[in-house]
Write a protein that binds this DNA or RNA. Structure first.
Lengths: 215, 215
DNA sequence: TCTTAATAGGTAGTTATACTATCCATAATA
DNA sequence: TATTATGGATAGTATAACTACCTATTAAGA
């Protein structure tokens, strides 16, 4: 038998080799319901296909790149399995990427509202993303980091550019399945990209700062 | 004895109450060298002051908000303890916030370079931030998320705005100690702020998308 | 002063997460 | 037919971040 990359059917050994995950790990994901079962051919035999490989890639991105716990990975893959629209899928991924923290800071909420209504955003105040933003403003307030809060409008404007670009990128894909994939993987992989780019920009401007101090 | 918020000296019970951390947890942080020892008054007595409370706040921000493991928290507080400049402190925090992943993808590096040299950035190619950016581009490439890569310039531009604003905020503070604090806490707390704002922007534009589909 | 509570410092135990190892009966492969 | 692979189940491991307990002291209150 040869393990061809062309044919879609494969057994556990090839799935392991092509995904880079150990057989016990794949079995663990099967037990946890993260990976859908293969097509059974006997009482102790099953074949897997391209969809299983893609699922393992997705699980890998969610765990390694986004650092999500398997419980949240399960929520995301369940949403992908269900017939969710791209917007619904985006909501599920957003919720998974946010670590919840209860907040009811009306002062912080007012500061945030002023900044986002200035740009005419419509967003759900009940969403985890809104609560996370309020929480971030509240933290900055309690730590007296006024220089950052004073520049909230600048961050909102930059966030708008990023968010618009994200949505632009989604609408590029043709099929719904492709858009779902783009939403989920894009949300997960665009995050570290932007974060790293911001750090590089900081480096760039910090060099200017150092040079101007030396002169 | 009354526990006054005015006086700087306090014992373990008050440190615990005011930090919101349990006594065993504070003892654990002392053992791990994250919290500096108090001033000893007897063989089994010590007093703590405002600096201990601030340190516990910092540890809390680094663990709860940034989700850093205690090993990285230790690296950050060691840098804060040492007489680092604000730029050095920023470097240490950047390194702590980035989860390392070895990459030597020349194709991804070329794509990134084209985008950042277009904006005239000078950044160290040996820095963890650069490697993280290359890694992010490489991941997007292997996942065929070309819509995002096609918009790399837009993300770089947004990142530049954020990075410039970050540095602006730092230079606002007066004393070096205040700037160090601003750099460390600002780097940690600005991250979830921007992330949440981006998600809110996505929500805003997604609503537009939904409405246009409905019509 | 006497009694009760708190403290520093140490060792050991706990919880949660994410695997990893071993078994066994069966099936595929050489 | 001998060896290897597989599915399914159960149990064990590694690590991180606490948490509990202990002992000898010290502090604080009646």
């Amino acid at each position: 038998m040869q393990e061809s990359a062309e044919k879609s059917g494969m057994r556990m050994a090839e799935l392991s080799r092509r995904s880079g995950l150990s057989v016990p790990t794949i079995k663990y994901y099967l037990r946890e319901g993260l990976l859908q079962p293969g097509r059974r051919t006997s009482v102790n035999q099953a074949v897997y296909d391209r969809t299983h490989l893609e699922r393992l890639h997705l699980i890998g991105a969610l765990t390694s790149v986004a650092g999500l716990p398997l419980a949240k990975v399960r929520a995301v893959v369940d949403a992908v399995d269900g017939q969710a629209s791209e917007v619904e899928a985006m909501g599920v991924v957003q919720d998974a990427l946010i670590d919840e923290a209860e907040t009811d800071d009306t002062a912080a909420s007012a500061i945030l509202d002023r900044a986002i209504t200035a740009r005419g955003w419509h967003c759900a105040k009940s969403s985890p993303a809104y609560r996370a933003a309020v929480n971030a403003v509240a933290m900055l307030t309690t730590e007296n980091l006024t220089p950052i809060l004073d520049r909230l409008d600048a961050y909102v404007e930059a966030a708008e550019d990023v968010g618009r670009t994200d949505l632009d990128a989604i609408s590029d894909a043709v099929s719904l399945e492709e858009r779902i994939r783009g939403v989920v993987l894009g949300s997960v992989l665009r995050r570290p990209l932007l974060e790293a780019l911001v750090l590089l920009a900081q480096q760039h401007f910090a060099q200017d700062l150092t040079r101007s101090e030396e002169s």
